[in-house]
């Protein structure tokens, strides 16, 4: 098997116009099975746009996106059957109960209703949420909803996972569980696209880090490689150095001095 065949996702020269602004300026990327990719970058760098393009939500991009070896621009949506997604905005139909929502999502992925219900309930049980399985999502706390979203993205046993801030609102114990889940999934050969602003988690979870800045990939490699190349200790420092952000001390100082004015 050569490298191109092995690529689950392969992106060539992806560009995207938003109005008259180029938000993606030619992304090239090959992702293989079993990789956990920490996809990071400042706000507005184009992370969500890339993910949306891969999910077929953004029309009108230039370049080529191949997922499982097929070009996705022809409108065939079958490839989505093997993708799971946790959106950053945590959108959910909160008038539904967890049972209704999860079986619905399962069915959209082509699962049998009974099977989806059984599996959803079992997954809810492991997250300690079985008691509220039939309560409306509107009554859930943020952390509970986030867990439901995670379940909904994994119910159909996908091969690729797109996770956008998947840990937001979760307590430290749940975070540990989820991190371990991700590592195990990757070990089984699943590919995980992990997008977050929390650098310590990205640093620990991912085995490949891609840093995006103003629509371009500016760094790509394992954490250790980046550490060595840039001679920085933490991912946070690497991030600051590459994105050219050095004035954090000045800004903090100014902020505090305004606070003290009263």
């Amino acid at each position: 098997m050569n490298a191109a065949d092995d690529a689950v996702i392969s992106i060539r020269n992806l560009k995207m116009l938003y109005g008259d602004k180029l938000v993606l300026k030619g992304i090239n990327l090959d992702v293989r099975r079993g990789q956990i990719i920490g996809y990071i970058g400042p706000n507005g760098a184009g992370k969500s746009t890339t993910i949306k393009a891969m999910l077929g939500l953004a029309s009108g991009y230039m370049g080529e996106i191949r997922i499982f070896g097929r070009d996705i621009s022809d409108g065939n949506v079958e490839y989505k059957r093997r993708i799971g997604y946790v959106p950053e905005t945590a959108e959910i139909y909160d008038a539904l109960t967890a049972r209704e929502y999860l079986t619905f999502i399962g069915c959209l992925y082509g699962m049998d209703e009974v099977q989806a219900d059984r599996k959803a309930r079992a997954l809810m049980r492991t997250f300690d949420l079985e008691a509220v399985y039939d309560a409306r999502l509107a009554s859930y706390s943020k952390g509970m909803r986030q867990r439901v979203l995670l379940i909904s993205s994994l119910l159909h046993n996908p091969d690729i996972l797109f996770l956008d801030e998947p840990l937001s609102g979760l307590d430290a114990n749940s975070v540990m569980v989820v991190k371990d889940i991700l590592v195990r999934l990757a070990a089984q050969g699943k590919t995980i696209f992990y997008s977050s602003h929390i650098m310590d988690v990205v640093e620990k979870v991912s085995n490949r880090i891609i840093l995006l800045d103003s629509g371009q990939i500016v760094a790509d490699g394992s954490f250790e490689e980046l550490q060595e190349r840039l001679n920085e200790k933490s991912l946070e420092d690497i991030f600051n150095q590459i994105t050219g952000f050095h004035e954090h001390k000045d800004i903090a100082e100014k902020f505090v001095s305004i606070v003290q004015e009263v």
Partner: peptide, 8 residues
């Protein structure tokens, strides 16, 4: 976000 990301 919920439906269009699925194979529909």
């Amino acid at each position: 976000v919920i439906i269009s990301t699925k194979p529909v």
